[in-house]
């Protein structure tokens, strides 16, 4: 009975892997193909021979190196900052009493209502005023508008669903708020925090329009703009573009696998059945 059930889930996972990974496999394969092979009428599932030149070109021809470093810096700082801020904000909303308790967090989500394809204009005006155009620090100032509403809300909804008994017991024992947050809530909320952290990271990682408009210097660029700058004519360098995608995926893979052990250490560790 149990075995059979798990087989079904394994089949489902296999299907998911197939659908998810095929396009990524295709990018991986393409990143090793020569220009001529990419443009074959009949595509080949395995490259004729593994060609590394697409990867080396990224760094020699397309200044991908600085862009990668910039993206890592921006995404890391914004993601970590977001988590700390959102943890406190979400705690305030769900555990403290004050006026505007439901209204204030809703204001957060209003931030998403107008698409970035429009918002970049006033944001540009604003950054021009404070002199932060053309620098990744400007991006760091803007990106939290994308990450904080999401992160705060995920944590709020998490808090809504978690019992308060342990916290209250600690408060009765005289624990300060800081102790409650970091010693009781933090360990329990870790799976949510880590997955929110990763999402915040990826939201910055793949952001394009602000990065394009706010940055002019090619050494301050982020990866998405570096990638789009490869599309200069009606002939797309598929090899290098795919190689760029593969390189963009690697840090996320590493972070994710590393973080994965924290994602499973929650209340439910070990005994989740369903």
């Amino acid at each position: 009975m149990k075995k059979q059930k798990n087989t079904i889930w394994i089949i489902i996972i296999a299907l998911f892997l197939l659908g998810t990974m095929f396009p990524i496999y295709w990018m991986l394969v393409t990143s090793f193909k020569s220009f001529q092979e990419v443009y074959n009428l009949i595509p080949r599932l395995i490259p004729e021979k593994l060609l590394w030149s697409n990867y080396t070109e990224l760094f020699t021809k397309y200044t991908f190196g600085p862009a990668l470093i910039n993206s890592i810096i921006v995404s890391t700082i914004v993601a970590v900052g977001t988590i700390v801020i959102s943890l406190y904000s979400a705690y305030a909303v769900s555990r403290m009493e004050f006026k505007g308790k439901t209204f204030m967090p809703q204001l957060f989500l209003m931030a998403y209502l107008i698409p970035r394809t429009i918002l970049f204009i006033p944001i540009y005006l604003l950054l021009a005023k404070i002199g932060l155009l053309n620098s990744i620090w400007g991006l760091m100032l803007v990106y939290p508008t994308i990450t904080i509403p999401y992160a705060t809300w995920v944590l709020i909804s998490y808090f809504q669903g978690t019992p308060k008994e342990m916290e209250e017991a600690a408060e009765v024992d005289g624990a300060t708020r800081r102790q409650v947050i970091w010693q009781i809530i933090f360990p329990i909320a870790k799976p949510s925090l880590v997955s929110t952290l990763i999402f915040s990271f990826t939201l910055c990682w793949s952001e394009y329009i602000y990065a394009l408009v706010l940055i002019n210097d090619k050494f301050e660029r982020t990866i998405t703009v570096a990638l789009s700058s490869m599309l200069v004519a009606d002939i797309i360098p598929w090899g290098s573009l795919s190689a760029g995608a593969v390189i963009c995926a690697l840090p996320i893979m590493i972070v994710y696998i590393f973080a994965s052990k924290h994602i499973v250490t929650g209340l439910s560790m070990g005994s989740v059945k369903g």
Binding site: S229, L231, V232
Partner: peptide, 19 residues
């Protein structure tokens, strides 16, 4: 700055609007 053609449109807009 060397810019791909399609990328110019938002950049022109932002530049013109902000001065």
């Amino acid at each position: 700055e060397l810019i791909a053609y399609e990328d110019f449109f938002p950049k022109w807009t932002a530049a013109i609007q902000s001065g």
